[in-house]
């Protein structure tokens, strides 16, 4: 029986900008057990990063949680003070960011930046921390750790910097590692290496990971559960198999269709999802995906779709699912 690690319930988060209230998260609910590798998928602006930052209490000004709750590892995050959050960040939950080139401070050595988090959250002294830092570098696959500790970020390649970021994130053995598009800024070959490293580390340390990405390929190779987000809402959740083999939401279906296939016919056109993303200042009353949906119905524009349980682990928020369900019942009834 797996313990629930993260329970986000009906989270609503807005950014109060001079232009108005940008409703970044509109009733988001995500649940995660220990040992899960959860993939959050969606395009830019869907709210996936905002959700992750909210878990860590890193919501940027002028953002505020306006409703719902976040429970992580027994903590009620949405009620914590900044001081209390500092003890949790880097310690029980840590994050690695998208761009390793800019995520490390250019004027301090690698050693300094790794030891910083160790000295902050553990009882190690400076010497011990330094030794541990060297261990961590080896763990993430960086050779000659002693030499690297004394180097500056600009002396390392992109892939190596991301490994350093991972080392910093793992230093205090967190229960949850959040990876916000960790490979988007890297070359494809390096991407593969980093992914391999993360899978390896997960097995070794039995970590829980939240993988935020727009790349379905990564999700397929790493994740056990998937959450699909669009326009500040969760539109579908399920296991990897359910999502890939039985997608129920039109957006999910569109995403899967738009992946270019190596074995496709030479003249086969790529299938994009038409239209532009939602205006978060004035989000529509109905389904956020409606204007771009090929099968949009009148009700989709008027009312927000409600979640339907397709299985114990698979939910989807789409009026088409309800219509289908109703038709199945009717068909079933008429057969009686």
């Amino acid at each position: 029986m797996s313990k629930t690690l993260l329970d986000i319930k009906n989270l609503r988060l807005s950014f109060f900008t001079p232009a108005g209230e940008v409703k970044a998260l509109n009733d988001v609910s995500i649940k995660m057990d220990e040992g899960d590798v959860l993939g959050i998928v969606g395009e830019s602006g869907s709210g996936k990063s905002v959700t992750a930052y909210a878990v860590m209490g890193l919501t940027a000004h002028p953002g505020k949680i306006v409703g719902g709750s976040i429970e992580f590892n027994g903590h009620r995050i949405h009620e914590k003070t900044e001081k209390e959050m500092r003890k949790i960040r880097g310690n029980e939950v840590s994050i690695i960011f998208q761009d390793p080139m800019t995520s490390l401070n250019p004027v301090y050595t690698i050693g300094n930046q790794i030891c910083e988090v160790l000295l902050l959250h553990t009882q190690l002294n400076r010497q011990q921390a330094y030794a541990r830092a060297a261990e961590l570098l080896t763990l993430v696959g960086i050779n000659e750790p002693e030499k690297r500790l004394k180097q500056y970020p600009h002396e390392l390649s992109g892939g190596m910097r991301q490994r350093v970021m991972i080392a910093i994130a793992l230093a205090c053995e967190p229960k949850l590692l959040i990876a916000d598009e960790p490979t988007t800024a890297l070359d494809v070959t390096i991407q593969a290496q980093i992914m391999e490293l993360m899978i390896d580390l997960k097995k070794k340390l039995n970590m829980s990971i939240i993988m935020i990405t727009h790349d379905l390929g990564i999700v397929a190779s790493m994740c056990s559960k998937i959450v699909v987000m669009y326009g500040g809402k969760v539109v579908e959740t399920g296991t990897v198999e359910e999502i890939f083999y039985n997608p129920k939401h039109e957006y999910t279906k569109g995403l899967l269709k738009s992946i270019p296939k190596l074995d496709a016919d030479k003249h086969e056109k790529l299938v994009p999802i038409e239209g532009t993303p939602v205006d978060m200042l004035n989000p529509p009353a109905g389904c956020p995906f409606a204007p771009r949906c090929g099968k949009c119905m009148k009700i989709c524009l008027k009312k927000m779709p409600e979640f339907m349980n397709i299985s114990d682990t698979h939910t989807s928020a789409c009026w088409l699912n309800w219509k289908e369900e109703a038709e199945n019942l009717k068909g079933g009834n008429s057969n009686d």
Binding site: L58, F97, T102, L104
Partner: peptide, 15 residues
């Protein structure tokens, strides 16, 4: 506005 400031906060370092 730089990313490494965000990294620092994510580590749990005080403002």
């Amino acid at each position: 506005g730089q990313d490494y400031m965000r990294t620092a906060r994510a580590k749990g370092i005080s403002q």
